[in-house]
Design a protein around this nucleic acid. Structure first.
Ligand SMILES: Nc1nc2c(ncn2[C@H]2C[C@H](O)[C@@H](COP(=O)(O)OP(=O)(O)OP(=O)(O)O)O2)c(=O)[nH]1
Ligand SMILES: [Mg+2]
Ligand SMILES: [Mg+2]
Length: 539
DNA sequence: GCCGTTTTCGGCCCGACTGTTTTCAGTCG
C-alpha cells in the first residue's frame, strides 16, 4: 500500500462525504490528510508498521489515525465501503465537470437517481435537468460541454512544456498600455513538476481594462469567465489560464496569494488571525487599517516570518523553518559546476563546447557501450572530462558488464530498465546489490510523469546504505522524468546522502535540462552541499 | 474531523464570478 494509494482512498472518501452533504470542515479534514500523505516523503506503511504515533502529524487526530492504520493493514477502508452504498462512486466523475460541484451533483442525484455521465447527458438534453431550481440554460450548456470533454480531468501539463507559452503570454500582457509588472504565479512559480494551469498576475493602475485585452490573446479558444479583476480562459491546447489584475500597492499580497500553495496561504492566514490581523490578496489589515502588502517580504514580516522562496511554499515545514530561522539556503543555477551525464554521440563535440561556454568546470560523457571508452578518453577540452558508463541492472541486481570491463571508467552508473513490478523487498535487495558496484544510481524510481508512477522500494533503506557507502542518487533532469522527485530529494537531504543533477543531454540545447532538475532540487530543500555537481572535482 | 501557553466547544482563509438570485448559493481561485 503506497502513500498514493492511501491518499486516493481518503480523497475519494472526502469527495463522497462532500456530495453527501457532510460538514465541509470534516470533508476538508479528509482532504488535508490525503494531501499530507500524498506529499509526504515518509512511507506511511512503514510508519504504521513501526508503531509511529500518527496523531503527532498536523491534521491527523484519533479517528484519521485509526482509519489510516486500517487502510494500511487490511488494504480496505470499511467507512469508505459503507459510504459507497449511500453515495454511488459514479457521481465522482461528475465532479470533474466545470461548474458542477458537490451540491448540484447531490441535487441531480436526489431528483433523478442518475449516477453516470451518460445518464447526465441524457437528462441535460431531454430538458429534465431544467426543472431543477438553479439550473438555467447556461449551466445546462456548460454541463453538456463538460460531459463531452471532461476538461478538469485532463492530465496536468509538464512544467517545461508550458514554459514557452508562459513567456509568450508575459510578453503579450506587458505590451498592453499601462501594465507595469507581469508575474507567472501559481504552481508554475513554485516550479512544480506539472502544472494544472497558468496563474498570471498583472499589475496595472488601470487594472479593469486588462481582462478585456487578455481574453483577446490569439491562442484563446474559450473565455470561461471574465470580471473586473479576474478572468479564466482556455487556450487551443486545452491549457487553462487564470488572470488576476490588481494595482501596484497590492503587488506583494496579490503575488503571495496567487503563488500559493493553497495550503501555504491558509497556514499564513491562520497565523495572521492569531496575531489579530487579516490577510487577503490586497493587503494585510489590522481592523480596517491596511498595514502591509506592497512586497512579499512585507507580507511575511507582518506575520513574523522571514521571506520564504516560492519553491518551498507547500506547507511542508517551511513556515516553522522560517519561524526558527532554519530555512535552507537553496542551491542556485550558479552553484552548478558541471554536468555529470551527457551522451556520447555524434553531437559530443558541440555539447562539450557548449559546456565550456556555460562556464562548467567538468563534464561526464556517458555511454552504454564499454567499447567507447578509448574514444571518450581521447576527447579534448579545457575542462575536465569524466568517462562514464551506464550499466543496466538485471533482475538479480547484477550489472551487464564485468568488473574488469568497467574498471577504467571514472564514473559507473547503474540503471533499472525492466522488471518494474517486483515486490518491494526483492526490488530493494536488487538495488542494494547493484549499488555495491556502481557510484551513482540512475533515475532511482524509473518513473515517467503521466505514464508510470515508479517502482516500489524501501527507499529509506537504500538511503541509509547510500549514505554509509558514499553512493550517490541521481536526479534525472529530463522534463518528464525528474526522478528523484521533490519529496524524495527532501528525504535524501534529511538522511544526508548525496545527489547529482544530470541533464542527459544528447545535444547542446539539452544541457538546459539541468534547470528542470534544479527546480526540483530547490523544491526538495536542497542546498549546494547536497548536490555533487555543485562542488569542484566531484570525482 | 481537528485543534487548544487564553479555549475540550466552537471555531475552521478569504474573495471573485456566475446565474435567475429579487439578496445569494455554488463553484472556483
Ligand atoms: N487563500 C486561498 N488561495 C487559494 C485558494 N485556491 C487557490 N489559491 C491560490 C493559491 C494557488 O497557488 C493559486 C492558484 O490556484 P490554482 O488552483 O491554479 O493552484 P496551483 O497553481 O497552486 O496548482 P495547479 O498546478 O494549478 O493545480 O491561487 C484558496 O482556496 N484559498
Ligand atoms: Mg495553477
Ligand atoms: Mg489557477
Amino acid at each position: 500500500m503506497t502513500n498514493a494509494d492511501i491518499a486516493k482512498m481518503l480523497s475519494l472518501t472526502a469527495d463522497l462525504l462532500d456530495i453527501k452533504g457532510e460538514n465541509p470542515f470534516k470533508v476538508r479534514a479528509y482532504r488535508n490528510a490525503a494531501r499530507l500523505i500524498e506529499n509526504s516523503s515518509k512511507d506511511f506503511e512503514k510508519l504504521v508498521r513501526e508503531g509511529f504515533d500518527l496523531t503527532r502529524l498536523p491534521g491527523i487526530g484519533h479517528d484519521l489515525s485509526e482509519y489510516i492504520k486500517e487502510i494500511v493493514t487490511t488494504g480496505k477502508f470499511s467507512k469508505l465501503e459503507e459510504l459507497k452504498k449511500e453515495v454511488p462512486e459514479g457521481l465522482i466523475d461528475m465532479l470533474s465537470i466545470e461548474g458542477l460541484g458537490p451540491k448540484r451533483i447531490k441535487q441531480i442525484y436526489d431528483a433523478f437517481g442518475i449516477t453516470s455521465l451518460d445518464e447526465l447527458k441524457k437528462y441535460a438534453e431531454n430538458g429534465e435537468l431544467d426543472k431543477l431550481p438553479g439550473f438555467g440554460p447556461t449551466l445546462i450548456q456548460k454541463i453538456l460541454k463538460g460531459v463531452k470533454q471532461l476538461k478538469k480531468a485532463g492530465i496536468r501539463f509538464l512544467w517545461a512544456d508550458v514554459e514557452d507559452v508562459a513567456e509568450d503570454l508575459r510578453k503579450y500582457l506587458m505590451d498592453f498600455e499601462g501594465v507595469e509588472i507581469v508575474e507567472i504565479a501559481g504552481s508554475y512559480r513554485r516550479r512544480k513538476e506539472t502544472v494544472g494551469d497558468l496563474d498570471i498576475l498583472v499589475i496595472a493602475d488601470d487594472y479593469m481594462k486588462v481582462s478585456e485585452y487578455f481574453t483577446k490573446y490569439k491562442r484563446v479558444k474559450e473565455v470561461y469567465s471574465k470580471g473586473l479583476t479576474r478572468s479564466t480562459v482556455f487556450l487551443d491546447n486545452g491549457l487553462q489560464i487564470d488572470l488576476r489584475a490588481v494595482t501596484k500597492e497590492s503587488y506583494g499580497s496579490a503575488l503571495h496569494y496567487f503563488t500559493g500553495s493553497k495550503d501555504h496561504n491558509i497556514a499564513i492566514r491562520k497565523m495572521a488571525i492569531e496575531l489579530g490581523l487579516k490577510v487577503n490578496e490586497y493587503g494585510i489589515y489590522k481592523g480596517t487599517k491596511r498595514i502591509a502588502g506592497k512586497t512579499e517580504e512585507e507580507v511575511y514580516k507582518a506575520v513574523g516570518l522571514t521571506y520564504i522562496e516560492p519553491e518551498l511554499r507547500e506547507n511542508r515545514g517551511e513556515i516553522e523553518a522560517a519561524r526558527n530561522g532554519t530555512l535552507p539556503k537553496l542551491i542556485t543555477l550558479n552553484d552548478i559546476k558541471g554536468d555529470l551525464k551527457v551522451y556520447f554521440n555524434e553531437n559530443i563535440k558541440e555539447i562539450i563546447k557548449a559546456a565550456e561556454k556555460r562556464g562548467y568546470e567538468f563534464i561526464g560523457v556517458c555511454t552504454r557501450n564499454v567499447k567507447d571508452l578509448e574514444k571518450i578518453k581521447s576527447l579534448k577540452s579545457k575542462i575536465k572530462i569524466y568517462s562514464a558508463i551506464e550499466c543496466v541492472i538485471d533482475k538479480d541486481g547484477e550489472l551487464n558488464y564485468s568488473d574488469e570491463e568497467i574498471k577504467n571508467f571514472d564514473i559507473v552508473y547503474g540503471s533499472i530498465e525492466d522488471n518494474f513490478d517486483l515486490d518491494r523487498d526483492i526490488q530493494t535487495d536488487r538495488i542494494l546489490k547493484a549499488l555495491e558496484k556502481i557510484n551513482i544510481l540512475s533515475h532511482p524510481f524509473c518513473r515517467k510523469i503521466n505514464e508510470f508512477n515508479g517502482i516500489d522500494i524501501d527507499f529509506e533503506k537504500v538511503l541509509e546504505y547510500a549514505k554509509k557507502n558514499n553512493k550517490i542518487l541521481e536526479i534525472d533532469a529530463r522534463r518528464n522524468r525528474l526522478d528523484l522527485d521533490d519529496s524524495k530529494i527532501k528525504l535524501t537531504k534529511e538522511v544526508g546522502a548525496k545527489m547529482v543533477i544530470n541533464s542527459y543531454a544528447t545535444n547542446e540545447d539539452e544541457l538546459n535540462n539541468i534547470k528542470y532538475g534544479l527546480n526540483q532540487a530547490r523544491r526538495g530543500w536542497a542546498e549546494r552541499k547536497d548536490i555533487k555537481n555543485s562542488v569542484k572535482n566531484p570525482f
